[in-house]
Write a protein that binds this DNA or RNA. Sequence first.
DNA 1: CTAGGGTTAG
Length: 342
Amino acid sequence: MFLTNLSKLKKLSVPFKPKLSPLSFLSTHPENQPHQELALNHQQQSICITNRSYWTKKIHDLCTKHRNVDEALRLLDHLRLRGYLPDSLNLSSIIHGLCDANRFNEAHQRLIIFLTSLCVPDERTCNVLVARLLHSKDPFRTLNVIHRLIEFKPEFVPSLINYNRLIDQFCSVSLPNVAHRMLYDMINRGHCPSIVSYTTLVNGYCKIGEISDAYKLFDEMPEWGVVPNSLSYSLLIRGVLRKRDIERGTELMHVLFQRMRYEEDQSVNSAAFANLVDCLCREGLFNEVFMIAEEMPQGNRVNVDFAYGHLIDSLYTEGMKKVLVKDYVSKKNGFPALSRPM
DNA sequence: CTAGGGTTAG
């Protein structure tokens, strides 16, 4: 024990030695300076704080090239004490740096701090920053930032895609009601919801079993000139089948295959087809799957290789699950495990 | 050549 601890100590003490050496303080070569001392660099002390482009680049380089946001923040604090007012470029560098380092809580917090010191970026930058904050998958926090942005910049309108991503994130934490409010928010701020907005919400309600709310959305879509696409139907079917409403599910399958016929976006058809096959397999409705495999009701609206590939894939995956469950149940009941051929 | 910068449903 002692020996190992001692040897650990010895090993640990080695890298610290050079730093403790008084000689290191004599070094004036910038490359020999540890990062922590950059803010106090003598050469930089003499650079005027009005040289904004110099400091902006410095802060940006610290956040990107050196991946050292903390040093950038320290430098910014230092400059602020000398009367420098951070601008939206500095703000942008810092927020991007924090997001790159996966420090999303700080990124949200820091953006609000910048706002309260009246550093408010332009519309485009606001949307770029919101887009980055959305990677945190913390919709409440990001929504709070959006509210603060609007507070300081009343004309700010989050982009349609940012709204849609926010809707998706509220749905994925099982809060489609909150997501639905986002839809009305975006309408109030002048957006026309897109098919992505509505399909996301349909899926959100289906995931928590609120099928009737999902249905209501199909009535609401035309008010905004939105036409449900094959993926919208496919996701609704998933919700309906999960409720074991086979009759309504098969009914909707016909609607889906009709809709596929005039779907312009082939990738939407592929996604809709894949989702349908997946949930049919998961629900054990193999007859329907075999019907699809034989009759191919999607015709040439889905790439044939993709369709067969996905059918085989889903059947195989579900089949393996069944085998595993069977194996588990038989073991549990005391049956000997399957003997393997030598 | 005035800095930099994100993109959704499955």
